[in-house]
Structures are given as C-alpha cells and as structure tokens.
C-alpha cells in the first residue's frame, strides 16, 4: 500500500502515538494514506478509536514482531 507519509511512533507511550498521528495526518491530503508504526499495546485500540472519531478510514493493520502497523486513509 502506497503511503504518503510514514510516522515512526515506536517506543512512545499513551497519549503520544495519537498526538503524533494527529499532527502527521495534518501534513497529508484527503484520500492519502498515513502509515503509523507503534509499540504501545494500547495504541491498537486507541488508533482504531482515533480514526473513527475523526472519520478517517483504518484501511489495514498488521503486527510485525513487537511493532503494530496501521494504514489510515485521511477523510
């Protein structure tokens, strides 16, 4: 999946993954994909909830080792 931007939020604890994702999504255009990498276990449910609250689409998520990956399509 072609991401317009990749955000490395690994090692960050709540609420920073969501805070950084919010900032990063402001830097891309509607319809583009933001790829986010995290290690915070809470970010799995948090980024899902965050995308929903902003009307963004969580297109795909994956786990690779300790890293959670999210692909969010900006509304």
């Amino acid at each position: 999946m072609e991401a317009a931007k990749v955000l490395d939020a690994k090692g960050l604890a709540c609420p920073m993954p969501v805070v950084r994702t919010k900032k990063a999504i402001e830097e891309i255009n509607a319809g583009e994909i933001l790829e986010v990498h995290t290690t915070d276990k809470g970010s799995k449910s948090d980024l899902t909830a965050w995308a929903k609250s902003g009307g963004h689409e969580l297109v795909k998520e994956a786990e690779e080792g300790d890293v959670f990956k999210f692909w969010i399509k900006k509304a």
Partner: peptide, 11 residues
C-alpha cells in the same frame, strides 16, 4: 493531561 491531549488530538 493524558485525557486532555487525547481529546484534543481527536478534534
């Protein structure tokens, strides 16, 4: 501050 920033990040 966690709840305030999380809420603000959610617009």
């Amino acid at each position: 501050f966690n709840l305030a920033t999380a809420a603000a990040a959610s617009d």
